[in-house]
């Protein structure tokens, strides 16, 4: 059996980064640091898994970062409003979680419906909703910060910081969603339809696939995952503002592409996306842990690694096609 180097490219890069990190700083492999990095990756990770489906079906969603900020704001407002009636207990928090996830589904449906039913380019639709969600959260917060009631926060806090040993809930949620996402993409009818639409939507339509329905579902799935990310994000700092989730959409898209999913659609790889997310957060972590370069250059290092990761895959792919 031949080892497929080109699919393993991102994994090799990830392992190289881990070795580099461990060599530069001994605290890199300490459980505390690993927990930090994995838990931090969970938000982008959950979103990126959903983004893998959207991009594989030939779509794009630029609104996810703003959507996350907006949902976090709405969930906080809902919990604060329910507090006098329901009291400071898990019921109120479950209500906030439901608001975030249902809100995500509605927002995703809105994006998907505008794209499939009104037939507007995904780039334009989600660029529009990106601005709308961002403005709405700034408006809801009156330009400031929406903060969750202190008592509720104390109760809600373990959802981000707690877990089973050092494996905190965000890590567990990310792992479960990743495994489930990989299974859906590989083994379910929905996953195969998504890939078929992304590689050639006309052929998919002739093969009796309900193209619009599947496309719409990818956006709804992404919206729901943004909602779950918000459920885990809110207990971390207990607040949302206009600066929440800025550029998350680009980080998620970058993670998807680093992982080997084609930006033009047709080939999705959920486990690759997970590796992409980990690569991105490890770069940040390593740059903070080791004083390699001036902090002014952090963005440049990230850019170089992203481009390199994709270039390596491209060369291998070209060699394969020959």
């Amino acid at each position: 059996m031949k080892i497929d180097l080109h699919t393993l490219g991102p994994l090799v890069a990830l392992i190289a980064l881990v070795i580099l990190g461990a060599a530069l700083n001994s605290s890199f492999l300490a459980p505390a640091n690993i927990t930090n990095v994995l838990a931090r990756s969970a938000f982008i990770g959950l979103i990126a898994v959903g983004m893998t489906f959207v991009i594989t079906a030939g779509g794009l969603d630029l609104s996810v970062g703003s959507m996350a900020a907006f949902l976090a704001g709405v969930a906080i407002i809902a919990m604060n409003a329910a507090l006098p009636g329901l009291g400071s207990n898990w019921g109120t928090i479950l209500l906030g979680m439901a608001v975030a996830v249902l809100g995500g589904i509605v927002a995703g449906y809105l994006n998907g419906a505008l794209i499939t039913k009104a037939r507007i380019e995904p780039f334009i639709v989600t660029l529009g909703t990106m601005g709308i969600f961002r403005s709405l959260v700034t408006w809801l917060a009156d330009g400031g910060t929406l903060s969750l009631d202190y008592g509720l926060r104390t109760l809600y806090r373990p959802v981000y910081y707690g877990g089973i040993g050092w494996i905190t809930w965000p890590i567990i949620a990310f792992a479960m969603v990743a495994v489930l996402g990989e299974w859906i993409m590989r083994h379910s009818r929905f996953g195969r339809h998504v890939e078929a639409i992304g590689s050639n939507d006309r052929v998919a339509r002739y093969s009796a696939i309900d193209v619009n329905r599947v496309r719409l579902l990818t956006y709804v799935l992404l919206g729901a995952l943004v909602g779950i990310a918000v459920v885990l994000y809110v207990p971390r700092l207990g607040s949302a503002s206009g600066s929440t989730g800025v550029l998350w959409e680009l980080e998620a898209i970058a993670a998807v592409i680093i992982g080997g999913t084609a930006l033009k659609g047709g080939r999705g790889r959920v486990w690759g996306t997970v590796v992409g997310v980990l690569i991105l957060s490890l770069i940040d972590n390593i740059l903070n842990l080791a004083d390699l370069v001036s902090p002014y250059l952090n963005g440049a290092i990230q850019g170089v690694i992203i481009v390199l990761a994709v270039v390596l895959q491209r060369e291998k792919r070209a060699a394969e096609e020959r």
Binding site: T138, A141, D142, G143, G144, T145, S241, G242, S243
Partner: peptide
Amino acid sequence: SATHGFMGG
């Protein structure tokens, strides 16, 4: 515009 706390204030 109000992009962070200080500017919001």
